[in-house]
Nucleic acid binder design. Structure first.
Length: 492
RNA sequence: GCUGCCAUCGUCUAGCGGCCUAGGACAUCGCCCUCUCAAGGCGGAGAUCACGGGUUCAAAUCCCGUUGGCAGCGCCA
């Protein structure tokens, strides 16, 4: 059995998008599942839009996602390197095969200008025909070619597509798809600049890099017959293809800015975990028979298969991603969350937020709020009141719990009593504190809530927060008394 | 316009001819737990399986057509 080799081949014209990650992920899972190799190749033949910076951003994003590549930039195998198409162009790789095709009369130079070609397509479309290049340079006599060359015209190279018959694709996900060859025009394989076009470079590289399978978005389905014809012309066997359905935005249109974040980096900045994004994306277009939702990455690997991929598109649901992120965080130990949080602070350049915070104390605070964390960025606002000297009292909380007509007398009583009585307590454990509070309620003949709530607001400034007594225990006796006294002084 | 792909709760999906009065998950609603907020547990509502025709004793499942959505039709990838 031949070793499975698959690739992710992004073009560095922007950030890594959700759709790109999904394509990368499915290839990565496929490779891991088959014990094969996952290759990263940069398709930077778009001379106008490709940038070095963008390539770097994509590499970084892949690293963050832990979609590690067995071969690619930074991990070059002499047999297949280089992994940037423009570097491969410099080596003359594409030119060589283009020359071969021209020599064998399977491709030809075309001197038509983009404007002329545009004109042909418009005309064809006006006649309700598929917009095609009409092939006029295909049968240029040698002397006519010479004439054009003399005029100083620089040609592109066009591939001679088959004029009749059909090209049949047996897609791993969709089954048999047949393309009528007469509908394909002679497409450009080498631009005037000498750079190969996508369809050519892709086919050549997939062959030279010995790809066994090509998993990609279904927006590439109609490119497939072109690439297959190139393989055939060169006498090569084409790889297996699998076209997965696209991911769409909430309105069913292609995922774009107005649907929220599209770049993975933005999700990272928000405090999503890479494994949540991975798990969520795996669920889009793939499923198990029992509709399992949560997968550790290892399980994703051994369960993944293309024949459980759906062929219908799916809509990206940010709410479910958020839920999944919470699930992943809840499944982590506090130590792990702490590490993730610190990494996130560094990444977002927010380390100053925790300036002066005691690290061990912070971990204990995280324990108390563990299952409330949905995003790493939630953590500061969840626990910051522990660390500030002068806490910020929420207006509504103060009005409702401390100063309302109904509550002000009992609140004042509870706080005054507590400031005094807690001083003498030896046992400041959560259990002991709870007993204290309940006893106080009984003694003063008030409801337990009338004891709990004022203390909560006094020491945290808010009505929401961790378990009251655990919060007190963690704060410690001195600080609790200090805060209660401060609240007393401020509001009563 | 041409070609192709797709079509099950709002969303992600299970379903490969009888187990479906269509199952799970997110979201939503209610109840329970409870010192608040969460988390968790339980339950509800939510899908004429896009529509119309076949085939069959039997169809969400197979076939044909229609409609709708999406994609491609570049010297972009």
């Amino acid at each position: 059995m031949k070793e499975v080799r698959v690739r992710f081949a992004p073009s560095p014209t922007g950030d890594l998008h959700i759709g790109g990650v999904r394509a990368a992920l499915f290839n990565w899972l496929f490779a891991k599942n088959k014990g094969g190799k996952f290759i990263l190749r940069i398709e930077d033949t778009d001379e106008a839009r490709s940038t070095e910076a963008s390539a770097q951003v994509i590499l970084d994003a892949m690293k963050w996602l832990q979609l590690n590549w067995d071969e690619g930039p930074g991990n070059e195998f002499p047999k297949y390197a280089p992994y940037y198409q423009m570097k491969r162009k410099e080596l003359g790789i594409y030119q060589k095969y283009s020359d071969e095709l021209v020599e064998r009369n399977l491709a030809y130079p075309c001197y038509c200008t983009p404007e002329e070609v545009d004109e042909m397509r418009k005309k064809a479309q006006a006649n309700k025909l598929p917009p095609k290049y009409d092939g006029r340079c295909r049968r240029l006599a040698p002397e006519q070619r010479l004439q054009k060359e003399k005029e100083g015209k620089k040609p592109v190279i066009r591939f001679k597509t088959l004029e009749s018959g059909a090209t049949v694709l047996n897609d791993l996900i969709r089954g048999r798809i047949e393309f009528d060859n007469s509908l394909l025009d002679d497409f450009v394989i080498i631009k005037v600049s000498g750079t190969p076009t996508y369809n050519f470079a892709c086919a050549i590289d997939d062959y030279l890099m010995e790809m066994t399978h090509v998993l990609r978005g279904d927006d590439h389905i109609s490119n497939t017959p072109r690439q297959m014809q190139i393989y055939n012309a060169l006498g090569w066997k084409s790889p297996e293809f699998a076209h997965m359905a696209m991911i769409l935005g909430s309105d069913g249109a292609r995922l774009s800015k107005r649907h929220g974040h599209t770049s993975v980096l933005e999700y990272r900045k928000e405090g999503y975990l890479q494994e949540a994004l991975i798990n969520y994306l795996a669920l889009l277009g793939w499923s198990t028979q029992d509709s399992q939702q949560i997968f550790p990455i290892e399980e994703l690997i051994w369960k993944f298969s293309t024949d459980r991929c759906r062929s219908s598109p799916s809509i990206f649901d940010p709410e479910k991603l958020l839920w999944l992120n919470g699930e992943k965080i809840r499944s982590k130990t506090v130590e792990q969350i702490y590490e993730l949080f610190i990494d996130w602070l560094k990444y977002t350049d927010n380390e100053k937020i925790i300036d002066g915070w005691d690290r061990e104390f912070l971990k204990k605070a995280i324990v108390l709020e563990h299952d409330k964390i949905k995003l790493l960025k939630d953590i500061p606002s969840l626990v910051d009141f522990f660390f500030v000297k002068d806490i910020v009292y929420n207006d509504d909380a103060v009005k409702k719990v401390l100063l309302s007509e109904k509550s002000k007398d009992t609140s004042k009583l509870v706080l005054t009593e507590s400031a005094e009585r807690l001083k003498n307590r030896q046992d400041f454990s959560a259990d002991a504190l709870e007993k204290y509070a309940r006893d106080l309620a009984v003694e003063k003949e008030i409801k337990t809530g009338q004891v709990f709530h004022p203390i909560r607001v006094a020491i945290s400034g808010r009505t929401q927060g961790p378990s009251l007594f655990h919060m007190m225990e963690l704060m410690g006796k001195d600080e609790v008394i200090r805060r209660i006294s401060a609240a007393l002084a401020k509001f009563f």
